[in-house]
């Protein structure tokens, strides 16, 4: 079913793609929300050349870091809505409002393409005195306030996973040690500075394969094809099913108000670019789930993601302001 919808959307965008005549007449600025070498950067730099080929134009990519990506978002929001400034970002802006990090989010933008989604995984130091998720929970209950859990600041993937765990298991008494990204946190995990880290699968997969860290549970409904032997979180506790599937994502956006034909051209270009075998292989290798959606489908994905995550964080008491204040409705039960 999904495949048919995807196909239909693709056909539609391909048909309308030809409409934007004379676009692009000059090079397009692609503003990457995160620094060089990060996963957003890698994804964007590897899909864009394929999209460029379809578009017949040049996209000059720039990294603009700072303010958890808000600097880049505001830069694109302040530019002309002509399709010559494109935002290449991740999931974070959907939480800016509730986290008090900014007044704008993706509702001020039109999704060109939601490229891929990541899966979260809980990993532990190899010497940790437990081997799976159930063992970890038992350890926490026996040794309250001793387990060191990695974190990356409010709104990051670990904070969402931790909020899920607190919601499902009840408040866990652990020490949350903050890092400035999952890379440094996973390094610290291998050195024993922290015991457990919720991370995106792609960042941990090589370390797991080499036996440098222990996988505890995959935060998904089904086992991951790259790590089929790792149990899913729902196999330990059904309660997680309400929140899954969940994961960070990468997407390309233009400012609200960009002419329809320009949006259609970009959507068609990125849609086809993301189907290139090299990109598909890259996403697969890093453990990302290819999505490649746009239009209404992307919009409803964003809305659902924002509702779920914002309210999860709100209920865990991690937000600066209630999602209600911004008209983010509580997800339907």
């Amino acid at each position: 079913m999904k495949r048919i919808v995807l196909g239909a959307v693709a056909a539609l965008t391909m048909a309308t793609g030809a409409m934007a005549e004379g676009y692009p007449t000059k090079e397009i600025q692609g503003i990457i929300q995160w620094g060089a070498g990060g996963s957003t950067d890698t994804v964007m730099r590897s899909v864009t050349p394929h999209a460029e080929a379809v578009l017949g134009g040049t996209v000059v990519m720039q990294n603009m870091t700072g303010g958890v990506g808000a600097i880049a978002l505001n830069y694109v929001a302040d530019a002309e809505a002509d399709g010559y400034t494109v935002l290449m970002g991740a999931e974070n802006p959907l939480l800016y409002k509730v986290m008090g990090l900014g007044e704008k989010d993706y509702s001020d933008f039109i999704p060109v393409s939601i490229l891929a989604r990541g899966t979260a995984i809980l990993v532990a130091n190899v010497d940790a005195p437990f081997d799976d998720y159930a063992g970890m929970i038992a350890y926490i209950n026996e040794n309250p306030g001793e387990l060191k859990l990695g974190a990356t600041g409010p709104g990051g993937l670990p904070s969402v996973i931790t909020a899920m765990m607190n919601t499902v298991e009840g408040e866990l008494d652990v020490i949350a040690v903050p890092f400035d990204g999952d890379g440094p946190a996973l390094t610290a995990l291998q050195g024993g500075a922290i015991d457990v880290m919720p991370a995106v699968l792609g960042a941990a997969i090589e370390g797991i394969k080499a036996g440098n860290m222990k996988p505890l549970a995959v935060f998904d409904l089904e086992a991951n094809q790259h790590l089929p032997e790792v149990p899913t979180i729902v196999s330990f506790n059904e309660g997680y099913a309400d929140f899954l599937p969940w994961g960070p994502f990468f997407g390309v956006f233009v400012k609200q108000g960009t002419p329809d034909d320009v949006v259609a051209s970009l959507q068609a270009a990125y849609h086809e670019g993301a189907q290139h075998e090299d990109f598909v292989a890259l996403m697969d290798g890093r453990g990302f789930t290819l999505m490649n959606i746009s239009g209404d489908e992307a919009q409803s994905f964003l809305t659902a993601w924002q509702q779920n995550t914002a309210w999860l964080l709100q209920d865990a008491g991690l937000t600066q302001a209630s999602p209600e204040d911004f008209g983010i409705a509580r997800p339907a039960e």
Binding site: P24, T25, T58, V60, Q62
Partner: peptide
């Protein structure tokens, strides 16, 4: 190095595209 300095009134993007 494709550093995009503020373009302002000078149509440099168009100029580059022209040469391209």
């Amino acid at each position: 190095f494709s550093v995009l300095m503020p373009a302002g009134v000078f149509p440099e993007a168009e100029l580059i595209q022209f040469f391209r």
